[in-house]
């Protein structure tokens, strides 16, 4: 997955969200339509055009205290309106590592 750290031009080709890491603990968060952050992808504001994406990203970036490193990430909208991560990187961020950690519960 190309790192979004290399994201230079904002041009989206499908439904997208703005995601970042929460400042105090680094947790994965998503920008909501209520100008806040949520750890649930389902709560995220969905944008469908590049202009909407730019606006949502600008608003998220302005909240430098709440979250770090916001960027635009693709999502898939399933039947019934369920939101799924749009690539493997975002799947891992949303669901956790794909490996058996062998760590005691």
């Amino acid at each position: 997955m190309t790192s979004p750290l290399e994201q230079k031009k904002i041009r989206i080709t499908g439904p997208s969200v703005v995601t970042a890491n929460r400042t105090w603990d680094g947790a994965v968060v998503y920008r909501t339509a209520k100008q806040g952050w949520s750890t649930e992808l389902a709560d995220s504001a969905i944008v469908n055009t590049s202009d909407e994406a730019r606006a949502l990203l600008a608003e998220a970036t302005a909240d430098d205290v709440g979250a770090v490193g916001p960027y635009i990430a693709p999502v898939e909208l399933k039947d019934g309106g369920k939101v799924k991560p749009g690539n493997l990187r975002e799947h891992i961020r949303a669901k956790g590592v794909t490996i058996d950690l062998q760590v005691p519960a």
Partner: peptide, 28 residues
């Protein structure tokens, strides 16, 4: 100062890196 907003992430980043703190996919 970072958590209070006194320092921006741009200002803080070099300080945290000097103490071995990166921001990765899921967490610091």
């Amino acid at each position: 100062r970072r958590l209070s907003g006194e320092l921006t992430e741009d200002e803080f980043k070099i300080l945290r890196l000097q103490n071995g703190v990166y921001l990765q996919l899921h967490a610091y």
